[in-house]
Write a protein that binds this DNA or RNA. Structure first.
Length: 891
RNA sequence: GGUCAUGUAGCUCAGAGGUAGAGCACUACGUUGACAUCGUAGGGGUCACAGGUUCGAUCCCUGUCGUGACCACCA
């Protein structure tokens, strides 16, 4: 006997345990020879499951389970990302709590600590994913820093290096002065902030370089960088300053003079039209500097403090303090003309919270232009498909304007760059130090000198570099492995739009380069999860929904159902706890259906049963409905419409299976049916069981736990994980069959009767007699034979099939689908109410008729769509008949 | 400044060139042995606005307005 409720907490762990084996097996063995692969986006090793992970995981798992059921050899490749900076922060903080400062450790010691930490507390998220029901084989977990992945990274880097695509260059980069490392453009996010625009006087220089009385005014938000100024620029067209071009100005607080240049960068509309050029600390100024051959002057150290050649009294000051002091000094010299509040955007590193400072340093860059061209082509030609398609535009846009990728980071945790150099600046890139030694030996032998000592580049690679190799490195690349042959390219990538640039495009670029193939065929971009008000979830806002918490409260299936139901092809979705509650309610509904079926011996019925052979009208009807719904559910999944998928099976269970079928068969099963109907009861039990099992299979990808549990309860020998439900594998009697049509018709009649009763305020429990005017001989037979279940649906006491329907006291006559009915209720009926209800019916019909008439009177419609026109014509006739009958009904 | 979305019931959102949908909320009724984590019934929308294409537009096209996201710029 099933318990009163579905006890998710007890059952879920058992199902997870039970499924492990089959999940692992079906990677390599299943009914079909074809494979289906999803490379799961590797979460940070420091990560803990949040609702965003939960959402994207559910989508991936639905696909995995669906394909596994269809017989594919299904691989969900799990893994973890070493998350360079993020992990370094977490571990540093932990060490600090133990009183250890990472700076006091050697690099090797620190890295050992990180590995220790990973062994103890890293990767918890994988177990959380399993709790979500992710059907992945944890034996296959890979890590971006494991030996195989590291090998792939080395191979990729050296190959790109020797192809001339990776090179070291002195260039301006985004610099994080807190972490003291370079960042890629993508890691910088701008925030609008209130700031100040300071108007500073730069005196014009006399011939001898001394300041004159005259000055120009330069507006800036960053006065402290003036020490790095190498020019002041004005637009060619700006008439105000033409006469000054070629003059030099004195740089305040210094003894230097700098030229006044004409450059298009300067915008006459902005500030004073004069802009100070600081090539070492501004991306635009760097470009201006290159155009005019200015030497960038670095005035900032790695921690963002001012350094020589800045005047002594400013040296060593952090930027904020320097700014104050500079302004004071300018003020005292009367060089500060005015201050103006403005709103401007300031670049931040989200991870450290530091203001990012552009700074010139030596960094490793990957030349991406060529790679991007092929990546563009792969999507343009349809080799890779974005779902929804519009995201391809975002992808195109970025790749068309791609900049070199700054690969190097000045941190310790990550893949160290495999380049060794000698003091003379020769560089040797190799996958091992020995190899680098050999290269160096060969190099210096040619020159005839001894081999100087080699030093490895201290930088590590951007975390996204190893991520970019992930789909193929996890399958064994650079080896020509079996996995790679069978499971590559992968089928679908499921991810958020926020990492189309970071990750998606880079995987495509490098896969095309190294394997001459796309990494995946479809990119499904899932919407971003927000709270119920459309706000981003964040701890500071306190609007975070913790998936683990709500899984505890409502059960995992409920959470999965809520999330899958939200998976619309849009931009963002809103989740609230009440949605999960509704999900839980549906799981309860399933549970109650199971209890009902069990109670009525629909469990353990013989299974050698062909649904095509059913005869009872309700059985014919439900089999047909199941056929329709499983087809649509299947198609929704094929189309990545997880929302419609969950809707379709929920609708099937509640509105079709429960409200009609179960309500209908209740009377048959309750023993009210005549004894001759024993075989009929058996057929009902078998059909109910068959449909029930079909339903469990169909819903399983979204709600694996409850379906798996009940599947086993129903004694199915094979796992639900591999139970297929392809549309073509389920046949039903043709829908034109008379039994089906009559069932459909009288199910509709029943709902009309209930509706009428409701509108007339007749209590549902009130027993009444239903009279039907004979319509046709087969219909009469049908009614005679199917009174019992119709009684269940309409709740009448007796059914009378009559030739005439005289209006008598206590009777209400009505019309459904050209048929005359009459119900006789013992309760007193309110004539006014009846009149009002009937009036409404008549008006609705009139309105419908009007609309259809105007439509079919259109000759062009008749010509263009003869079939639609004819169908409308039939509907019109029927409506007109109904109207005539309604108007004839006496109250 | 550029790009991409989006506007449908009180709320959250589906939808299809041919009679406007669901869930929640709301109203009324109901615990008859699957289910109150429920059931039955009901009310509620000029499908943002203006043009165009079409026999027919809420749907396709153009424009306007509103909203959102991303990229770039930001002296």
């Amino acid at each position: 006997m099933l318990a009163k409720d579905f006890d998710a907490r007890t059952i879920e762990p058992k199902i997870i345990e039970k499924s492990k084996k089959i999940i692992a097996q079906t990677v390599t063995q299943n009914r079909k020879n074809e494979t289906f692969t999803i490379t799961l986006p590797p979460p940070n090793v420091t990560g803990s499951l949040h609702i965003g992970h939960a959402f994207t995981s559910v989508i991936q798992d639905i696909l995995l389970r669906f394909k596994r059921q269809q017989g594919f050899r299904t691989l969900g490749q799990p893994g973890l990302d070493h998350a360079g900076i993020a992990t370094q922060i977490v571990v540093s903080k932990q060490l600090e709590e133990q009183g250890i400062f990472w700076k006091d450790l050697s690099r090797a010691e620190f890295i050992r600590k990180v590995w220790e930490w990973k062994g103890k507390s890293g990767g918890q998220i994988l177990h959380q994913l399993t709790r979500m029901g992710m059907s992945i084989d944890l034996e296959r977990v890979r890590f971006t820093m494991d030996p195989k992945s590291s090998q792939a990274v080395l191979k990729a880097f050296t190959t790109l290096f020797h192809a001339g695509l990776i090179a070291k260059a002195k260039s301006i980069v985004n610099w994080d002065p807190v972490f003291k490392t370079a960042l890629s453009d993508l890691e910088v996010s701008n925030r609008e902030e209130k700031g100040t625009l300071w108007h500073i006087r730069y005196p014009l220089a006399r011939e001898d370089g001394t300041p004159s009385e005259d000055f120009i005014v330069v507006a800036t938000t960053r006065p402290e960088t003036l020490f790095g100024d190498q020019a002041v620029a004005v637009h060619h067209s700006d008439a105000r300053y033409q006469h000054l071009l070629g003059r030099r100005v004195c740089l305040p607080l210094t003894t230097r003079t700098i030229p006044l240049l004409a450059d298009e960068h300067s915008d006459p509309e902005k500030g004073t039209g004069l802009v100070k050029i600081t090539p070492a600390h501004d991306f635009n100024d760097f470009a201006v500097g290159q155009r005019h051959h200015l030497t960038p002057l670095n005035i900032m150290d790695e921690a963002g403090r001012l350094i020589s050649p800045v005047p002594k009294e400013f040296c060593g000051l952090p930027l904020q303090d320097a700014r104050k002091k500079v302004l004071e000094a300018l003020e005292s010299l009367n060089l500060l003309e005015k201050t103006e509040p403005i709103v401007h955007s300031v670049p931040y590193n989200d991870r450290s919270g530091a203001v990012v400072e552009p700074r010139i340093t030596d960094q490793w860059f990957l030349e991406t232009k060529k790679l991007a061209e092929r990546a563009l082509e792969a999507v343009e030609t349809g080799r890779i498909k974005f779902v929804p398609e519009s995201w391809a535009n975002t992808y195109f846009e970025w790749l068309r304007h791609i900049q070199p990728w700054c690969l190097s980071r000045q941190i310790w945790w990550g893949h160290q760059i495999p380049v060794w150099s000698t003091p003379d600046g020769s560089m040797f890139c190799a996958t091992t130090e020995e190899e680098a030694q050999q290269l160096a030996a060969a190099h210096f032998q040619k020159k005839g000198g001894p081999v100087p000592p080699l030093t490895r580049d201290p930088d590590v690679l951007d975390t996204w570099f190893s991520s970019a190799l992930w789909p193929f490195s996890t399958l064994g690349w650079p080896e020509d492995s079996d996995l790679l042959k069978k499971y590559y390219p992968t089928n679908v990538l499921v991810t958020g739009f926020d990492i189309i640039f970071f990750w998606v495009s880079r995987m495509i670029m490098l896969s095309l380069y190294f394997l001459d193939d796309v990494p995946f065929k479809t990119v499904y971009i899932n919407p971003l999860v927000r709270d119920k008000h459309g706000q981003k979830m964040s701890k500071s806002k306190g609007n975070v929904i913790d998936p683990l918490d709500i899984m505890d409260t409502y059960g995992t299936d409920a959470v999965r159902l809520a999330l899958a139901g939200l998976a619309i092809p849009g931009r963002d979705i809103r989740i609230s706890e009440s949605l999960v509650e509704m999900g839980r309610n549906f799981i309860t509904k399933i549970w109650n259906v199971a209890k009902f079926l069990e109670m009525h011996q629909c469990k353990g019925v013989p299974q050698n049963f062909d649904v095509q052979q059913v005869e009872h009208p309700l059985n014919v009807w439900i089999v047909q409905k199941m056929k329709v719904f499983r087809r649509s559910a299947y198609e929704h999944l094929e189309n990545y419409r997880f929302d419609l998928f969950t809707q379709s099976f929920q609708h099937f269970l509640k509105d079709i299976f429960c409200d009609v079928y179960i309500e209908g068969i209740k009377t048959c099963l309750a023993g009210l049916a005549p004894l001759k109907a024993l075989s009929e009861i058996l057929e009902i039990r078998q059909t109910a069981a068959a449909i029930w099992l079909e339903f469990l299979k169909m819903a399983h990808p979204a709600i694996p736990f409850v379906t798996d549990f009940l599947w086993s309860e129903w004694g199915q020998p094979d796992s639900i994980l591999t139970a297929g439900w392809e549309p073509e594998a389920f046949e039903a009697p043709p829908p034109e069959k008379e039994t089906y049509c009559l069932a459909e018709l009288y199910i509709f009649v029943a709902s009309e009767v209930r509706s009428l009763k409701g509108m007339l305020d007749i209590p549902p429990s009130e027993k009444f007699d239903l009279f039907v005017k004979t319509f046709s001989a087969p219909e009469k037979t049908f009614l005679e034979q199917n009174q019992n279940w119709l009684k269940g649906l309409c709740r009448f006491k007796d059914l009378h099939i009559v030739d005439d329907l005289p209006l008598e006291k206590g009777r209400v006559c009505f019309v459904v689908q050209e048929r005359d009915f009459c119900l006789e209720s013992p309760a007193a009926l309110d004539a006014q109410k009846i009149k009002a209800v009937f009036q409404k019916k008549i008006e609705q019909l009139r309105l419908d008729i009007q609309k259809i008439e105007s439509k079919i009177q259109n000759e062009a419609y008749k010509k263009a769509q003869p079939q639609g026109w004819a169908a409308d014509q039939r509907i019109l006739v029927q409506k007109q008949n109904d109207l005539a009958k309604w108007q004839g009904v006496k109250v």
